[in-house]
Nucleic acid binder design. Structure first.
Lengths: 347, 347
DNA sequence: ACTTGGCACTCGGTAGAATCGAGTGCCAAC
DNA sequence: GTTGGCACTCGATTCTACCGAGTGCCAAGT
């Protein structure tokens, strides 16, 4: 995977070139039309003629910041151009209306973590009109608060485990013999003694006896720990997939992007890759994933009690409103972090 | 809401008209092009000339089964045309490969109901290339097997309830006073005595005393029952939303359909409306929901132990492959019903 | 009373030509 | 280094002509 100018300093543009680049990006984001020298000269308040702008543009094009769809069309930013723009973006703020919307949301939202994350995803979409991705993950460090084995019928038991972070996991256990209620109750008691305080990734000393109860206990523990790797708790919530149809024009592109969003594992990997690189935006093919070449993905990490616990993301076309979107992602991720850490329970 | 020919007998077409209609539908579904008299005459093995077919077509058009996009184009089926086609479809079968695929799926699938439903949704999409909808619902009749109140901290408890159908519900309880572990344990015991065997919609006699434990119990019961209406257990799983982009050509249509799929409540209502009407397919505007006028929705009910428990559905363009899709929905719903009723546990 | 071949007619789709105009690159002058 | 001027490019738009699939109608055939 390639390193980007966000991490390597990269060249700086002189002030005028920077202004021009910024003007091009801004206008292109608005209009989706190649932008010409004259409109740049008019917009940006650098008192120069279109001709001057043109000559600067050739330079910018030669250096890879701009591109021409064809001769005699205006310029369009390249991924590198967007990258420069983003890297030199003075941190945006979000409107007071949205501020209010977010604050309201977080004071009202209730319920389980999952639901909060799902709702947050919808919030982000409403705020920005882009498809949003919320990844919640990594409960592995949570410890067991309580375990209970429940008899469904003689051969089926249900193992319900409550963790310190409020997560509840359930597992089906199938006993190889007909278990009595007494067996189950005893197994349940032993499991409690065994598991409380442990976390999913810690080893547990299971009884090696061969009686019914011990077998049940072993099966239950095995079942619980079997899921540890999958569990790692990665969950994805995607909001506003219909926005994809607004953001891209080719039906084929829309199909591709949607197909990608369906592969949740892929999305998680993608988001975490970007986080690992310390980026907050991946533009075009920066993430090295070809089918998303026409997309930009903004991410902002969330954490719970200081531990990384996922991220929120926004997926849009490369020509997206970076300032607003990044601000929204940042603010929401901060609120979410606080909320999940239990800091703003003011009701 | 309108009644349809599926429930009211409606007129019958004479054999030749029926053959012609069927030919038109079949070819249009394949090609998406208006179909002309000559190709019908060639395809269907009714030994008549195109001219005859044409004169029949005018009748069919007058009666509302066919339409002409414009003079001098071929004919296209109307919703009514599709309806007739579907109502007179000899029940289709599905290919042996798919049979195999389904059988394999259901012997291998494991885990919680939710996951099974979600996976089933994906299966249906893979089988048919249409967007699939799986609605699971109505656990209200399930009874409580076990309850447990767990102390998160002095003011936060977690109520975990296990139902006879294997569902596990959790609720946050906030105590208005600092609860000790002893309080919580005692409350937990009382809750068990109180709730086991009841269902979510049954009334429960809560203790009226004013001590800590009684208060906790009351709060827990209130919290649990508060969710009964929302809970009713309606869950929706949607698979293959990217197929929407394949099924419809206008980007705007794609957007609309996606936007609808995002509103889960709407989807549930829609599916249940159709089921209530005793239909297995809603074509075009039959469901009375305008934005989906260009869609057809195939549904097949699922049940658990004889009780209705949701449905599987397939969403496609009105020109969809009804035979295959209906067969797939039917077969999968049957398998799912058997699976959820615990009948095919052959591992 | 149907069925059929014949035939004029319709009208969307496609191809080509003409035109427009936004925007460029270059250059000579400032 | 900047600027106005200017010829040039090339996609987009419009217009026209035309093709042909498919129709509706009719008169003749069974």
């Amino acid at each position: 995977m390639v390193r980007h100018s966000a991490t390597q300093p990269g060249e700086e543009l002189d002030s005028r070139k920077a202004t021009i680049l910024e003007a091009v990006v801004s206008e292109y984001v608005d209009t989706a039309q190649p932008v010409g020298s004259s409109s740049v000269a008019a917009t940006a308040d650098l008192d120069v003629s279109p001709a001057t702008v043109r000559s600067e543009m050739v330079t910018l094009e030669r250096e890879g910041y701009l591109a021409q769809p064809h001769t005699s069309a205006g310029r369009v930013p390249t991924d590198k151009g967007y990258r420069y723009f983003v890297d030199h973006l003075r941190a945006g703020t979000i409107g007071p209306v949205q501020q209010q919307q977010i604050r309201e949301f977080f004071t009202n939202v209730r319920g389980e973590v999952q639901e909060v994350l799902e709702q947050t995803s919808n919030l982000l979409t409403r705020l920005t009109s882009y498809t949003s991705v919320v990844v919640g993950g990594g409960h592995t460090h949570a410890t067991v608060l309580s375990v209970q084995l429940v008899n469904l019928d003689a051969r089926h038991q249900l193992l319900v485990t409550v963790f310190s972070d409020g997560t509840v996991l359930k597992h089906n256990v199938r006993s190889t013999f007909a278990a009595t209620h007494v067996d189950v109750a005893e197994a349940s008691r032993q499991l409690n003694a065994l598991l409380i305080g442990t976390s999913l990734d810690s080893r547990v000393q299971v009884p090696s006896r061969h009686d019914h109860v011990a077998t049940l206990v072993r099966e239950a523990v095995a079942e619980l720990h079997a899921q540890a790797p999958t569990f790692d708790g990665e969950q994805v919530f995607i909001g506003g997939s219909s926005k994809v149809a607004e953001s891209f024009d080719g039906v084929e592109t829309v199909r591709q992007v949607l197909a990608i969003l369906e592969q949740e594992l892929l999305v998680v990997t993608l988001v975490e890759d970007i986080l690992d690189q310390g980026l907050s935006v991946a533009i075009g093919s920066e993430h090295g994933y070809e089918p998303l070449a026409s997309c930009a993905l903004i991410v902002a990490p969330i954490s719970v009690d200081g531990e990384p616990a996922g991220a929120v993301g926004l997926l849009g076309p490369t020509r997206m409103k970076y300032r607003e979107a990044m601000a929204a992602a940042r603010v929401v991720s901060e609120h979410l972090t606080r909320h999940l850490s239990g800091e703003d329970e003011r009701d």
